[in-house]
Simulated scan of single mutants.
Amino acid sequence: MKKPLQFQDIPFEETLPEEPPAPALADLFGKTPVKRKGAWKYWGASSLQGLINTGTHQLLAASPFGFVTAFGRHLSHAARIRFQNRIFAKRIARNLFALQPELKNNPAEQRKSLVRWWQNISSTLAEFAKANTIWTRGRITVHGREHLEAAKALGGPLVIVSMHLGTWEAAFTAFHLDLAPPCTGPFQPEPCRFKNRIVYNLRRKRNQYLFPPGQKSAFRLHRLLTGGAANLMIFIDEMRDNQIYLPLFGRPVPDAGNGVVAIKLANAAGGTILPVYLRRKGSRFDLIIEPPLAPSSDAKTRYPVEETLHRLNDVFEPVVLRDIEHWYMLSELRLPEGFENDQARQDHIARLRARADER
């Protein structure tokens, strides 16, 4: 019988995503065009961008929080103009307007909403540099602590599920340091190796193990949870196969992805699913802890997958619609063709937005 896995059994260095091999410096001036192009990209453009990213991160980490938020908002205008003709930027605008049917035929309000989305997301990206201190400096107000205690009382590890709203990395920090320590989970690496190093160093400072994709990581998460060594936090609006599958927005329930992983891990570990999310309040945040999902009486299937995905969607879809101008994953959502002209879908979205406003 294997002994339960503990964090001290895992080298922290293995939470750093694998990096591409460095091309030989000689390839910079080699005769092979493909190798020469790859070498210049690795040692030239990527390294220069990495130095800029690292320097900016260090500058923001040392700056007052209010300045960091304002810095992000200030840069958002340039970013919006720079990328306005890119496919992803057009997709952001289309999604934003389609999910706010009340703005239809009102281009002035649509434009204001789009400007606010860019401002909020730019602030979020800048505030990543402060993710370790947003919680410790008291910039997060917790609502629903009684739901956290109720979840703990149900027994087993917590499986904390969330959406990419607000500066979501700070939610990782809050649960890991104080609310439900220790807290682990998966994450999706950035394409840039320098950004991954920034993320790695930030998490190392708070000693939080978050694992990149792969079978080895999945195996470790399973063992950590089933062995009672950790709670899990997982974001179920991740991109998979060039699509965001949750919230559903009237689409079919997915048969794979982080939502399914969360449910299966909760079942395997006898855990309790707890929905949470952040809401921005200027340069502060509310951390909303929703009631835990009550498990079924079936010991073998604590949480039926399809039913539980619908229950999670019922929690998060109205929230995302209400806070759509703060949802980072909007840029990767591919709504069905004709979505904004489907009256039944638009009525459904309007009802959910109204329900969220009442919360």
Score class of each variant (00 low, 15 high):
I324L: 15
R197F: 00
A180P: 11
N105M: 07
R284N: 15
R94F: 12
R351P: 10
I324W: 01
Y209Q: 08
G166F: 11
H77Y: 11
A26L: 14
E325M: 08
L309H: 10
S296G: 09
S123L: 03
F29Q: 07
P182F: 02
H57S: 04
K3V: 13
F316M: 02
I244A: 02
R94Y: 15
L248W: 11
D342I: 06
A24V: 03
S113E: 11
A218T: 14
P275M: 08
A354I: 05
I324P: 12
Q49C: 05
W117G: 09
E190V: 00
R220W: 14
A218K: 07
P213I: 04
A126S: 13
A344S: 10
E109I: 07
M329F: 10
N85K: 08
N196H: 10
K35P: 12
E13T: 12
L278T: 10
P291Y: 04
N201G: 05
I324T: 05
A26E: 15
C183N: 10
R94M: 13
P252L: 04
G38L: 02
Q49W: 12
K130L: 13
E169F: 01
V320R: 00
N258F: 01
E238Q: 14
K112V: 09
K112D: 14
E190R: 00
L16T: 07
A26N: 05
I10T: 07
K37F: 12
Q58K: 01
V34T: 14
V319L: 04
D178A: 08
P254Y: 02
R351H: 13
K3Q: 15
E332F: 05
P291R: 00
L232D: 06
H310P: 04
S162M: 04
H74G: 02
I81W: 15
D237S: 09
C192S: 15
P182N: 09
A269Y: 07
E290K: 00
R359N: 11
H147Q: 07
V199S: 01
K35Y: 11
F128P: 05
P4L: 11
P213T: 09
H77K: 15
A174T: 05
R86G: 10
L75H: 11
T133A: 00
H164T: 14
I134F: 00
N207M: 08
R82E: 06
A129R: 01
